[in-house]
């Protein structure tokens, strides 16, 4: 088994062997999660704190279920309503929580790099549940597991990522992961939603969706935030749907067995056609949610194993 990371802050710091190890373990948890009794004691006695400085229902629920199925004591902190409002700095919040001896800290924050900063100040393992526009590693891992199970492999695939790449941490983590696993990556979207210097990431960039989708194995759609639809980045919702919304016609340019993915929550009729999203022959969107729990269980177990293998650090 190879997994060396002390924290899961981003895909950037993981090696291909670590990714494979994590996905292999996650596969086992998929089986467990489908049984009647879904409980193990792997993390029994350990404390997991979910700190979400940004609203999230799905990711937070997924982490909570993952922790509980592994037997950890899980606590959710709604950070928006707490001391942050009273002016406490992120580091002070981190030190306060650290003094309560948690074993796993799951953090989502609206600012890029905030989770890295926090990880420097605590003794426990930190999992990044999304920081600003930087990374969302568990999302990329669950996408990878979904692809591997649907396609039977995670290399030499042609993957199109479509939509608001500029503001998407999901896109960044996926570009990094799929690149590390040696896949061809195509980015599709209007130039106003492409980040600067993107061509240097070893990807192909397309402004025409049909051209970009040609013969791809996987189509990953991204959510378009409501606040970006007001004419600032794109002229209107309906023009966006016309040019970049995934519908059966546009999808017909991809390989016949291409799968359709979306990290959720979806805007039906904005970035994806509602019927297509529900088409169980093409869409793996529900599988993605299922894989999310398994991947997060695997990530937490591996981080705890790394911790246990190390001499215990002195707590401050």
């Amino acid at each position: 088994m190879t997994f060396r990371a002390k924290h899961l802050l981003g895909i950037e710091h993981l090696g291909p062997d670590e990714i494979t190890t994590l996905l292999d373990l996650a596969d086992q948890y998929v089986d467990l999660n489908r049984r009647d009794v879904k409980h193990t004691d792997t993390l029994a006695g350990l404390t997991q704190i979910n700190m979400f400085f940004e609203n999230s229902t799905r990711t937070q629920a997924s982490f909570e279920i993952a922790g509980k199925r592994l037997g950890a004591d899980v606590m959710n902190m709604a950070m928006q309503a707490s001391s942050v409002k009273k002016g406490e700095t992120l580091i002070d919040t981190a030190l306060t929580l650290n003094a309560m001896h948690p074993d796993l800290l799951v953090v989502r924050h609206p600012h890029s790099g905030a989770v890295d900063l926090l990880a420097q100040k605590v003794n426990c393992a930190v999992l990044n549940a999304g920081d600003g526009r930087h990374e969302h590693p568990t999302q990329a891992l669950l996408d990878a597991l979904t692809i591997r199970r649907a396609k039977g492999r995670l290399h030499r695939l042609s993957v199109a990522i479509c939509g608001d790449i500029a503001h998407s941490r999901v896109a960044r983590s996926n570009i990094m992961l799929l690149g590390k696993m040696e896949n061809r990556i195509r980015l599709i979207g209007p130039p106003t939603l492409m980040p600067s210097g993107i061509a240097e990431f070893g990807v192909e960039v397309f402004e025409d969706m049909r051209e970009g989708l040609r013969d791809v194995d996987v189509v990953m759609m991204l959510r378009l935030q409501k606040e970006r639809m007001d004419g600032g980045f794109i002229p209107s919702e309906r023009e966006y749907y016309h040019r970049y919304g995934l519908d059966p016609e546009k999808l017909s340019h991809a390989k016949p067995d291409a799968i359709v993915m979306h990290p959720g929550p979806m805007n039906r009729g904005v970035e994806i056609d509602g019927v297509l999203a529900d088409d169980i022959n093409r869409s793996v969107i529900q599988e993605q949610v299922e894989m999310g729990v398994a991947v997060r269980m695997a990530a937490m177990e591996l981080l705890v194993r790394t911790r246990r293998a190390q001499p215990r650090e002195v707590m401050v």
Binding site: S112, R133, P195, G197
Partner: peptide, 15 residues
């Protein structure tokens, strides 16, 4: 500054 590094770190960039 906008460019590869800004995108890698997900930080708001200026041209």
């Amino acid at each position: 500054t906008s460019g590869k590094f800004a995108t890698l770190r997900g930080l708001p960039a200026v041209s």
